[in-house]
């Protein structure tokens, strides 16, 4: 319920500048993607995109600094903190729905598309086009193997993915220990567990990269190797990006803690980053189950 101390910032240049940064960055990215040999040098598009990104990041840096400063000035009432907490929760929900689109694509392809392409059911007519195609999952051949060269092997769940599952699940526990230590005002324990969490995240990303290298070079699983590669890289790729972002957020929190930020009653930034971390962990469990094991 509202009280009169709700802080409404006077005015801020960050939103409009952030919009400009986002526009320049995405426009540059579009230029990079649409670039063809005939357009000459790639430098221009890369410069546009990088300038946009750096500017965007700089504005966000300023923006977050403002919010932190306001909190230290005591302007952030409990009610405003509730707003931040709710905002972060709904943001995570929107991320869940983003991944849901890719999981949905995977389920639909596995349950319907591939069997239908293989001639199953009374609606299937694709076998008229590609009569040699045999449905199986993972698909070791594609309907058109010239356009989409098939992969030669699959990533086994009990190799790197299992290690990564252990790493990420452990990191969810360590970030919880870290939170627990903060709540009991044990600062060095808080920082140590947080540091371990970030380390686990970094090792996860390293292993994920190693797995990509193996999949791409040894197993010919590429973006172009048909629907398995498409769903595999889309799901694990966006997850990997989120792990990277989450680890970056936790790293920022660790650096802030060295500057003396966060007390046992006031640590929303850390709490939000840890919620995000639990979220990427849960997504991974879904990935491990549906992309690797089943």
């Amino acid at each position: 319920m509202a009280d009169s101390s709700y802080y409404v910032p006077e005015s801020s240049r960050h939103p409009v500048l952030a919009s400009i940064g986002m526009f320049v960055m995405l426009f540059g990215l579009g230029m990079i993607m649409n670039h063809s040999e005939a357009d000459g040098s790639m430098t221009g598009p890369i410069v546009v995109c990088s300038v946009g990104f750096v500017f965007f990041a700089y504005v966000l840096w300023q923006w977050f600094s403002d919010v932190i400063r306001e909190n230290h000035q005591g302007l952030t009432s409990l009610q405003l903190k509730d707003s931040y907490a709710m905002g972060m929760s709904w943001f995570i929900f929107s991320e869940v729905m983003f991944f849901a689109a890719f999981f949905g694509a995977l389920f639909y392809v596995r349950s319907f598309v591939v069997p239908w392409l293989g001639g199953e059911g009374d609606k299937a007519s694709s076998h008229l086009l590609w009569s040699d195609f045999r449905a199986m999952w993972p698909p070791m051949s594609n309907p058109d193997n010239t356009l989409y060269p098939a992969m030669t092997g699959v990533v086994h769940w009990n190799e790197i993915p299992l290690i990564n599952t252990v790493l990420l699940l452990a990191s969810s526990v360590t970030v919880h220990f870290s939170h627990h230590a903060l709540l009991h005002d044990e600062r060095s324990k808080f920082q140590a567990w947080l540091g371990i969490t970030i380390l686990l995240g970094a090792v996860f990303v390293y292993y994920q990269a190693a797995e990509y290298e193996h999949a791409w070079n040894d197993l010919s699983i590429t973006l172009n190797s048909g629907i398995y590669g498409s769903t595999f890289y889309m799901l694990t790729g966006f997850h990997g990006l989120h792990v990277t972002l989450g680890a970056f957020m936790l790293l920022v929190m660790l650096l802030r803690s060295f500057k003396g930020h966060f007390t046992k009653d006031d640590h929303f930034g850390f709490a939000a980053a840890s919620w995000y971390w639990h979220f990427v962990d849960v997504v991974w469990v879904g990935l491990f189950l549906f992309v690797y094991i089943l």
């Binding site: 694509a105 319907f112 594609n142 973006l223 048909g226 629907i227 889309m234």
Partner: peptide, 21 residues
């Protein structure tokens, strides 16, 4: 995003020739 990948990065989400639809 899937469209973008299909157009520029060679995925086959929406192309039956690669097992998509």
């Amino acid at each position: 995003t899937m469209m973008l990948f299909d157009i520029h990065l060679g995925t086959s989400f929406f192309d039956a020739a690669g097992g998509g639809d």
